[in-house]
Design a binder for these strands. Sequence first.
DNA 1: ACATTGACCTGGGAGC
DNA 2: TGCTCCCAGGTCAATG
Length: 271
Amino acid sequence: MPELPEVETTCRGIEPLISNTTIVHVVVRNHSLRWPVPGDISDILADQKILRVTRRAKYILFNLTKGTLIIHLGMSGSLRILDKNIPPAKHDHVDIVLSNSQTIRFNDARRFGSIHWTTESINQHRLLAHLGIEPLTAEFDANFLLEAIKGKKTNIKQTLMNHNIVVGIGNIYACETLFLAKISPTREASSINALEATKIVSFSKATLQQAILNGGTTLKDFKKADGTPGYFQNELMVYGRHGEKCYNCDSSIAKITQNQRSTFYCESCQV
DNA sequence: ACATTGACCTGGGAGC
DNA sequence: TGCTCCCAGGTCAATG
């Protein structure tokens, strides 16, 4: 479910509520996530203080006294801060119980999310080491993109979603970015010229930032830390709008399949 | 080195 | 109402 804006929304929502609290213990009701939850996670985390909550790609990083707790929300995951006495509901797999009598509750229907512990630098963690650059930094510019797509014969949409290049852009925001840039998702990546690269970069930043301001996109499962949904779904230009009229011309939005994912776009506006 | 495909898992909606 | 089939904000591993 969550792309960069939803993960960022989660981080911003929980950090003020839990920073400088101490973990008392961890309750794991289901170890079987995308990767097994470490069996000794409660022993490891007990008595550690939460210093900061940050984000790298779609990973949430809890900066603790002795290392980093890494959480990925997968497709359907969410984190909420609740009173520890509220009984767990279906798919509430993990509780990180805090000294202030609250709990960080991890819910994930599809269990594609994961929880990791590391004492090494996060750039060295095997799941994070290969990640590309952050889209909302100055490093992500037209020159970088042009260099990255050189010789790439895959389509531009999949390239935007390739997290070895640039992280955080998933299916929704790749579609939205290409609509705003008026570029067809089916274009071969290497065919993108300098002007088009500039548009892709600036519109991807704009749409991600706008989504963060709106608390992310809630299609189904996504909840902010306080349990309320995001609102960016009301501002989507093409995602999920197949058959409806393009906001920019008279044709209707098409839905095609690329690399086993749905793509939504306007065949006449996007060339 | 690159590109494509399968796998993981549950729930909701469409269609019969 | 109930069944089956298809689809879904991700991404790693195996295959070509």
